[in-house]
Write a protein that binds this DNA or RNA. Structure first.
Ligand code: FES
Ligand code: FES
Lengths: 151, 151
DNA sequence: TTAATAACGGATAAATTTGTCCATTAATAT
DNA sequence: ATATTAATGGACAAATTTATCCGTTATTAA
């Protein structure tokens, strides 16, 4: 009782990142992908994945087309402009950037919590990492089979 | 719909750290503190805080004494041996250290997810920070009124 | 030994997150 | 036009986390 959790991003966000990487890779091969294929490829519950893809679509991170021959895709040209930060923002908001590590309403330099300095250091590194890591940069190794979206 | 979250630690863990810092500081002044005082001092719901303190007590992070004159405290001698990692472990487990950033069952060097390298870097820094920051080291500035456990 | 104090523990409730179901809408092909 | 395909959106359900309530237990003091 009273235990567990402790993941950096929400489940939705995790799925969102995984889906984006898969769709990006397939888009580089000029393939549109359907909901079912995405869900299977990233090992996520299909109905929930539908919501995830809608959210990505609403945030213009992926394109979606209805009907036969439709599916999800990303613009090859703009692929290098989608960063992990874009996706994290769409799902988890900016709490992870602005939030206080000890749960005070807002992180506040003027009235910092006791772990502010230490926490800010980590948080800023995370922020930089997310803002400099493009989805595209992650697809190469995935395509080579060096990294995995499910196990 | 389908939004929000994004905090590093669970609420329980946040309360746990805040409570520990408060109790540590008061223990340095040789004061035992009661549930009500703790809850007010860290601005947390009192009944839930009760559970939090029980959890800390069960994990030997704080002492608790029943009855009149009782309350919660920490051993002044051992105060420098309690690290943030101790508390995080008690509430959120080791997921935050061992977990995969994209939610794969386990982080696995041999079959890494696409963000493994980047994520591991951050995660290890967080781990080091938590393992080297003692609760005691945080009390000094709090006592001086330079840091805050509520606002 | 009794009354008062204060933490403990179990049951339960509220809120949030995760997940499902299904009818609707849009697009394509016949 | 019609049937088929595939995403969309709304309502709902399960699971988890956060939070409350209240009787019990242990401790102290009178
Ligand atoms: S105030 Fe807590 S992290 Fe900045
Ligand atoms: S496998 Fe994903 S973080 Fe290591």
């Amino acid at each position: 009782m009273l235990q567990k959790q402790g993941q950096m991003f929400s489940k939705a966000c995790e799925y969102g990142i995984r889906a984006s990487i898969y769709i990006a890779e397939q888009s580089q091969l000029d393939r549109k992908v359907g909901l079912k294929e995405v869900a299977e490829s990233i090992d996520s519950p299909i109905a929930y994945t539908s919501k995830i893809l809608q959210q990505l679509s609403r945030n213009k991170i992926i394109n979606s087309e209805k009907g036969p021959g439709g599916g999800f895709s990303m613009d090859k040209q703009e692929l290098d402009k989608v960063y992990l930060s874009t996706i994290v923002l769409a799902f988890d908001g900016e709490e992870i950037y602005k939030g206080c590590g000890l749960g005070l309403k807002q992180c506040n330099e003027k009235m910092p919590c006791p772990v502010h300095d230490q926490f800010k250091l980590i948080r800023d590194k995370l922020k930089t990492m997310l803002e400099t890591t493009s989805v595209q940069s992650l697809t190469a190794d995935f395509e080579k089979g060096l990294t995995f979206l499910k196990r």
